[in-house]
Design a protein around this nucleic acid. Structure first.
Ligand code: MN
Ligand code: MN
Ligand code: ZN
Ligand code: ZN
Lengths: 143, 143
DNA sequence: AGCAATAATTGGAATTATTCTAATTCGAAG
DNA sequence: CTTCGAATTAGAATAATTCCAATTATTGCT
């Protein structure tokens, strides 16, 4: 289990050689550590440029490959806002996303204690939900 | 106010020359009537091919332009599932979307009586939500 | 260690939904 | 009827993402 402490995210070297059955290659560790390092929901391109600092030879294709591997193994979440480029989120707890229309900044939003989906949606009974995405946009109360 | 009765949607000719301050050109009426005709959440391309039946000279660019005009005037909703092409929905009531992973079919899902956003989300106080999108994927209980 | 098999990485090309551009056409208003 | 801003059009451009084929790295044997 990877620590998500706000003030100390693992360097690539600190990540184990395998997580959850996923082989952690040098590139995957780099990409994962970049996603873990900041909670700003970077795009693939953001991850690419940040990764290049430590690993100048990494390619954008590899960043996409690594992100896809991490997402499909449940280590990272992919976040979408309308037709904008996908963003990546290291927060695996149940949450959704709010984008400040002024700045573009994305904030994690958690569900209130003990609420669950079926409680507020009129879902056709027997429905098995495998994926849920809630995206909000608006303004932060600034006054 | 446009009728949304399941079994009689307006033909282009039946639509007025202006709705809500939006000038309804021949093409906009055609596109709007196509979106109103079926509740299957067509993509821009779907709308294009359906429109071409009645109006063979309409262009894809125009379909995009018309959909954009209709969406920004609140007459049609734009619906997104992850990175898939946008879809368009004539249902203006408060609802969200469920996509059957088997068939790709999209179903409208309504909120239970009297629930409201702030009731289940831990939103930073003072937040003004201007846009909300909830997208679900999964399987319909088939047994 | 040496070797074969397998998986990951890479640069560049391809894909594709959508947007842009510049020219033409339309239509409301006078 | 003319004018003029708005809408439509065909086609080019854009941009995020995926694909491809070649190279490189890693794993699992002997
Ligand atoms: Mn997702
Ligand atoms: Mn929307
Ligand atoms: Zn998040
Ligand atoms: Zn809908």
């Amino acid at each position: 289990m990877i620590s998500l402490d706000a003030n100390s995210s693992p360097t690539p070297e600190e990540l184990p050689p395998e997580i959850d059955g996923l082989r952690m290659t040098k590139q995957r560790r780099e990409v994962f550590s970049v996603v873990l390092a900041e909670r700003d929901h970077p795009t693939a391109n953001d991850v690419f440029s940040r990764s290049q600092k430590r690993m100048p030879t990494i390619s954008l294709a590899t960043v996409y490959n690594c992100l896809e591997a991490l997402v499909s193994h449940g280590l990272v979440r992919q976040v979408n806002f309308e037709r904008e480029p996908s963003r990546y989120c290291p927060n695996l707890s149940d949450h959704c996303h709010f984008q400040d229309e002024k700045t573009g900044t994305i904030h994690d939003v958690v569900f209130k204690e003990g609420v669950n989906l079926a409680d507020f949606l009129e879902l056709p009974q027997g429905t098995e939900v495998s994926h849920l995405e809630i995206s909000l946009k608006g303004q932060i109360g600034s006054n």
